[in-house]
Nucleic acid binder design. Sequence first.
DNA 1: TTGCTCCTCACGTCACGTGAGGTGGC
DNA 2: TTGCTCCTCACGTCACGTGAGGTGGC
Lengths: 156, 156
Amino acid sequence: MTVAMQARADERLRRIGEVADELGVTTRTIRYYEQLGLLGDGDRRLKGTHRLYSPSDIDRLRELIRLRDLLGLSLNEVTQLADAAQVQQCLHAQWQHTSSNRTRARIIRSAITNVERQLDLVHTRQRGLADFEVQLTEKLTKLRAYLTDLDSRPDS
Amino acid sequence: MTVAMQARADERLRRIGEVADELGVTTRTIRYYEQLGLLGDGDRRLKGTHRLYSPSDIDRLRELIRLRDLLGLSLNEVTQLADAAQVQQCLHAQWQHTSSNRTRARIIRSAITNVERQLDLVHTRQRGLADFEVQLTEKLTKLRAYLTDLDSRPDS
DNA sequence: TTGCTCCTCACGTCACGTGAGGTGGC
DNA sequence: TTGCTCCTCACGTCACGTGAGGTGGC
């Protein structure tokens, strides 16, 4: 009960500007993703009224933005790799009543495959960055040595 | 002399398609960068003739693409951070006759600043990827545990 | 009531993608 | 000569940026 209270404690719905600031994007980006259908349901909202985001909506958005930013994927690729909204449902509250165990197992298995692919991409990027880091460090060493060499000589 | 020979051995000029393949981009990208003035001199080439790239041209291009790809910079930011062509000149052949020691030292110092900034950005990215990796790994563990739990229950 | 943030078009921009039609080198 | 890759426009696309003009909540 106390845990449930804590969980509820931040279930407050946030407005688009607050969300955008937290995630480091603009409101335009969030609206664009909704337009592409990446955010599930803007359907329930009445046209003209404010968009409101739950913590799980924000988690979802953060995932999309990380896939785009850190892995450099196109929004099309992001769509392929991001968890379907179903997975969130499966892991949260009322999954017991929505489908069979077999169906849930299938959903979870595909989610696992997706996360494994994401991890592969993360590792590939990490190798790329490590290579780049080595090259930059070597370059820095060379430049510093060269500078020392220059300073030790008389002006030309 | 032998070292010089080895260095010369791959001084062969390459065509745009070959370069594009090696760097994992399209020819369009390379032409676009030239158009923006990121590649120094397309001036010497006669209009309509083939573009040719030296190994140091290719190194320069690889740097630009890494800055864009791995660090997610805009081409404008890339321009700010990429080494000026002068730096290559300074480090290579005939720098002795082009400018004073003082001038060369100034150029090298600014190059060092640039590389240090690049390294900072690399480290920031690495932290971001490490965080992402942790989250993905935790998620994977949860999903697998959940799946085991599901499999151990009778079908609903 | 006064700001503030939100809303919906809608045109602009950045970084290329993608043909269209034609020319040069092994 | 035959392919192949290259060339130059130039319009299209993706992922937003950027106002223009207007409405809703503390």
